[in-house]
Write a protein that binds this DNA or RNA. Structure first.
Length: 422
DNA sequence: TCTGGGGTCCTAGGACCC
DNA sequence: TCTGGGGTCCTAGGACCC
């Protein structure tokens, strides 16, 4: 059997690159994109990485650095990033028959059919085309397994010589590549495992590959074994071209300012439930279980968190029905005197919309409610999110609990009113 | 003062059944 | 009344990913 060849295409500093496409003046300047509520740094340009600002740093902790280096700060603009991602993925897809869209900014490709001598040129072509068509710079790592392709990609990004492209298949430098890869940078090794491995003298990917099998198996389970095999060039993670159905759907938000009254919490939860209902319907799923939760912040003394799970008598994705149950649940778990900072709803035990168990005593006309939901989704899609909404979600256009994005760029590509002007 | 959101998988242990 | 073993299912917790 011919050995598999995987490529990992990864957008460089994706959110920052999206902002730069429409603001070319930001090139070579330090840029940060923030999380919801403008809280933490979630994307950093190379200039910012060079300042040792790590991902997840709260922005208030680096106020002085921002000022000193004139770092450009942006709120998250998911409409823009989602659309740019689609353009990038469509472009890559036009080159290959097998693609796994792994995240908003990464895709694995199967290049087994490309002849060895052609692979580098083929990938260069992908790189150039993506940049030309979308303005997004990408790096590509190539190897016999996904884990090695990840490593190749990391090095491709960092090394000046590689110019964003590195092929480690049959490479005489493979050991060297593994040796210069910190063990914590291996795909599947996080903080905890990293600490453990380093304690045992396993500092880099090469040492991890050659480490005692029983030790890795015992601590990291079957994933550890697969990881070692992948580092040896034996593929254990195949390309997943058809994403499996989701197993759960969550909608949750942190509030910029703490919320203390039940009316606000109810509005927030009703809003999250509506959003969750939309997501369920888009997936063509119904939920059997809904969990509603509220909590105080993590950084205070007097904490409180509570949740309520609701087993739905008939699995559903019907927003008003879900809102009713959620409102009941909130009544039960809400406590005065706590500064609530976060709330959310989780849908679990999902089933396909068309093949669920109906209830014997079900009094809801499900055909009718489905029609209403379909129309509502269609109108909101056409006229903009939130055009039609339920009164329970609140009538105030900017309620206290609303997520803030004070430094957001325009939705350049998805809103006629925000198109860039030349 | 100010600290994100949405996922997946594996494992150990307990309950329960035969 | 005492004794054994094997299997399945569920759940909570812990790890990871982006």
């Amino acid at each position: 059997m011919k050995t598999k060849i995987f490529a990992l295409v990864d957008c460089n500093n994706f959110y920052v690159s999206c902002e730069r496409v429409f603001r070319p003046d930001l090139k070579n300047k330090p840029v940060i994109v923030l999380s919801n509520n403008d809280g933490c740094a979630v994307a950093r340009s190379n200039e910012v990485k060079a300042l040792n600002i790590s991902v997840g740093t709260p922005v208030f902790k680096i106020a002085d650095l921002i000022k000193k280096h004139d770092i450009q700060i942006y709120s998250s603009n998911y409409a823009l990033y989602g659309d740019m991602s689609e353009r990038v993925m469509n472009t890559i897809s036009s080159f290959v028959s097998s693609i796994e869209i792994y995240s908003i900014d990464e895709a694995f490709l199967d290049l087994s059919d490309i002849s060895e001598t052609e692979i580098t040129n083929f990938c260069k072509k992908i790189q150039q085309t993506v940049y030309q068509w979308t303005g997004i710079p990408v790096s590509i790592g190539i190897a016999e397994t996904k884990t090695l392709a990840k490593i190749a990609n990391r090095i491709a990004k960092k090394s000046k010589k590689a110019k964003g492209l590195l092929d480690l298949t049959q490479s005489p430098y493979i050991n060297h590549a593994l040796e210069i890869t910190d063990v914590e940078d291996v795909w599947g090794v996080g903080r905890q495992y990293g600490k453990f491995l380093k304690k045992h003298g396993i500092l880099n990917a090469l040492q991890l590959r050659d480490a005692a099998h029983y030790l890795i198996r015992k601590k990291m389970g079957i994933c550890g074994t697969k990881m070692q095999n992948e580092l040896k060039g034996k593929s254990c993670f195949p390309l997943e071209t058809n994403p499996p159905a989701k197993k759960g759907i969550t909608v949750s938000r942190t509030f910029k300012k703490a919320v203390t009254n039940i009316k606000d919490i109810k509005e927030a939860i009703a809003t999250f439930v509506s959003r969750g209902g939309e997501k369920l319907r888009r997936e063509k799923s119904v939920a059997k279980l809904m969990i509603v939760y509220i909590s105080t912040g993590r950084f205070i003394d007097k904490t409180y968190c509570a949740s309520k799970a609701i087993s739905l008598p008939v699995p559903t994705n019907n927003t008003p029905e879900l809102i009713c149950y959620a409102m009941d649940a909130i009544e039960k778990i809400f406590r005065q005197d706590f500064l609530l900072k976060k709330a959310g709803v989780i849908f679990q035990e999902l089933a396909p919309e068309n093949s669920y168990q109906t209830g014997l005593f079900d009094r809801i006309d499900r055909k009718k409610s489905k029609k209403i939901m379909t129309s509502l989704d269609a109108i909101n899609k056409k006229m903009g999110a939130g055009t039609l909404k339920y009164a329970a979600t609140g009538l105030n256009p900017s309620p206290k609990w609303r997520t803030v994005f004070n430094m957001r760029s325009p939705a350049y590509t998805t809103d006629w009113n925000q198109l860039p002007c030349v």
